[in-house]
């Protein structure tokens, strides 16, 4: 159950920021915190690392968001810590030919 603290940097005219913040907060997994200038604090709560990453990508792509940064990441109860580099690949590794 990853919990992540985020800072979203808002782009454009400040008059559009409330709308952007509303878009960010529309997802039930997102808690919107205080805003300071063009930056707003967020906390996300998801059920799996993959969902956490997908939500991050979605928030980053939200209209009106310039950049998104993580400031806190708790993974103490995330069960799925994978460990090895997968061997499956569409292309084949390079040859030893010279």
């Amino acid at each position: 159950m990853p919990v992540t603290g985020l800072v979203a940097h808002l782009r454009g005219d400040p008059s559009g920021w409330p709308e952007t913040i509303a878009r960010l907060g529309a997802d039930a997994r997102v808690t919107v915190g205080p805003r300071e200038g063009g930056r707003v604090a967020l906390v996300t709560e998801t059920t799996a690392a993959a969902e956490d990453a997908a939500l991050f990508a979605a928030l980053e792509a939200t209209e009106g968001v310039s950049q998104l940064f993580v400031v806190f990441h708790d993974f103490s109860d995330v069960p799925e810590i994978e460990g090895t580099v997968p061997r499956r690949l569409r292309g084949r590794p390079c040859s030893d030919e010279t």
């Binding site: 919990v3 603290g5 930056r39 400031v71 708790d74 103490s76």
Partner: peptide, 14 residues
């Protein structure tokens, strides 16, 4: 943990 996350984010924007 959520409180810590929000505190960190709030500190960062400040």
């Amino acid at each position: 943990i959520k409180g810590m996350a929000m505190a960190a984010a709030t500190a960062a924007i400040g």
